[in-house]
């Protein structure tokens, strides 16, 4: 148990410290790198909870894909660092307000669970013990049975978002010579190459 407690405080401590660095780092690229560190430690906390599948999905999806694109964009931006710091105090009240709302909401949820433990159970599927079924199987069983419509709906939402992004950014430019692989492959030698017998000294 001591090891687990130590691991918890390590992951939690680094996650919070990295989270603070995300908003206080001067360089936006450093901010994104600290954000990645935060995600990584959150994954560690999931492992400690016994939710190893969620932990790995967090790393694959958020750290391995989403944060890469974040970093990609931030690195390409031409940012004036001094200008970036100017609006800090101006946005502080709004940021603090959002943080406060989140804090109150979390307090209400966990406070509710504390005072009425059965309320927490009513909304959730019963959790099987880890030695009966692995995490992945357990998730698959509820995700593709009880929640299959919600799961599909989430997929459709993402698909619509993807198509929307493509439609908004796609423009067909005239006069661009694009490689058309199927046309290249379907070309026959007879259509494109002509054999001529050339008389010496006369040219074609």
């Amino acid at each position: 148990m001591i090891i687990q407690a130590l691991a918890f405080y390590m992951f939690a401590g680094i996650a919070i410290a990295a989270g603070i660095m995300v908003i206080s780092a001067r360089n936006p690229v450093h901010s994104v790198l600290f954000l990645i560190l935060t995600f990584f430690n959150a994954a560690g906390l999931f492992v400690l909870l016994g939710a190893e599948f969620l932990a790995m999905i967090l790393v694959v999806v958020y750290v391995g894909a989403v944060a890469v694109l974040f970093l990609f964009v931030v690195m390409m931006l031409d940012i004036n660092f001094a200008e970036l710091r100017e609006g800090f105090l101006q946005y502080l009240p709004i940021g603090a307000l959002v943080g406060l709302i989140l804090l109150v909401e979390l307090a209400m949820v966990f406070g509710g669970w504390h005072f009425a433990p059965e309320a927490a159970k009513s909304g959730a599927m019963p959790i099987p013990s880890p030695d009966m079924v692995t995490n992945t199987h357990a998730l698959g069983r509820v995700l593709y049975t009880n929640y299959v419509y919600l799961f599909q709906a989430a997929g459709v939402v993402l698909l619509v978002a993807m198509i929307g992004a493509i439609v908004l950014t796609h423009r067909s430019r005239p006069g661009v010579r694009k490689q058309d692989i199927s046309r290249q492959v379907s070309r026959r030698a007879e259509e494109t190459v002509e054999m001529r017998k050339v008389e010496p000294g006369s040219g074609i």
Binding site: E52, F53, V60, L71
Partner: peptide
């Protein structure tokens, strides 16, 4: 011998891009 071994491998190999991205920047 973890339950999600292949996911772990996939996750770690997807992190490999950070070393390169950080170096380049």
């Amino acid at each position: 011998n973890i339950n999600v071994g292949i996911m772990y491998l996939f996750a770690i190999s997807s992190l490999g891009v950070y070393g390169i991205l950080m170096a380049g920047w």
